[in-house]
């Protein structure tokens, strides 16, 4: 699919690389997003990479759509195969029933034992395709085929902070308490969104994530350490 420029009024435009969820396509999105940021094009105020596109927000009093598009086209022409490095995070997750209200149901609906659901969920390395929905909310994939379920028909009004969720081939972590329609199969004691940190979101688009199962006791220990400010999340730089 060719790259398309889509107009979003007089203060944003979208550079669309495709219409699907795909790692290669998302790689292009992330590389282009980095290139746009590095280019410091006058008038562009921020960029939002998604699964398949980059939204460019600009200040209509300092530039105009045609100038922004021309600058972006030049960047696309020079788009090389710059290798992208990523951060690999190891995120502790407790899958015990107290932290996993939907695990039984997911097991029943997928015809698996709860332990198999946990294994299928925790044995993969995930890619953060994008951050959206709420502050710090990472859309991660790809989920094992056998765990693919549609969203809940009755979304919860309150999903607790730190909940690990799955739906529609994706997995996510709720960074703040919010409404939510995904299935909750675990919880992390880490804070995905913390104003004391800069940037406040732990995960960014393009990051890689491993989930490490922990017991309820370890969950409490880590939670206390996080609250006291002396827990260091495991993170290394890798080539995706």
């Amino acid at each position: 699919m060719n790259v398309r420029f889509l107009c979003c009024g007089d203060s944003a435009l979208v550079v669309e690389f495709g219409a699907h969820i795909d790692r290669g396509l998302n790689d292009r999105v992330l590389r282009f997003n980095n290139a746009v940021r590095a280019a410091r094009i006058p008038g562009i105020v921020e960029t939002v990479p998604t699964f398949r596109s980059v939204m460019i927000h600009y200040d209509p009093l300092h530039t105009e759509s045609a100038a922004v598009q021309a600058a972006l086209e030049r960047l696309l022409d020079s788009e090389g195969s710059v290798p992208r490095s990523a951060r690999l995070w190891r995120i502790p997750v407790c899958y015990t029933p107290a932290h996993a209200p939907d695990l039984e149901e997911v097991a029943r609906r997928t015809g698996l034992a709860p332990a198999q659901v946990v294994r299928l969920h925790s044995e993969r390395r995930y890619r953060v395709y994008m951050v959206g929905f709420s502050p710090g909310y990472p859309y991660m994939g790809d989920l094992a085929q056998r765990l693919t379920l549609p969203r809940r028909t009755d979304p919860r009004l309150r999903v607790p902070r730190g909940s690990i969720a799955i739906a529609a081939g994706m997995t996510a972590i709720y960074p703040v308490e919010s409404p939510g329609g995904w299935h909750l199969i675990g919880a992390t004691p880490l804070r995905l969104f913390d104003l004391a940190r800069s940037p406040p979101a732990l995960l960014a688009a393009g990051d890689e994530v491993l989930f490490e199962p922990i017991e309820a006791g370890t969950f409490e220990e880590i939670r206390a350490a996080v609250a006291a400010g002396d827990y260091r999340v495991s993170c290394e730089t890798v080539t995706p």
């Binding site: 979003c8 669309e16 219409a19 939002v48 939204m55 959206g132």
Partner: peptide, 27 residues
């Protein structure tokens, strides 16, 4: 497949009734 939205985006869900996204809109 989710992509970016801006304040002022007019999104149309399955009901066909438009929603004008305002300043606290999801990103």
């Amino acid at each position: 497949v989710s992509d970016g939205v801006v304040s002022g985006s007019i999104q149309v869900p399955g009901t066909g009734r438009p929603i004008v996204l305002m300043v606290d809109n999801q990103t």
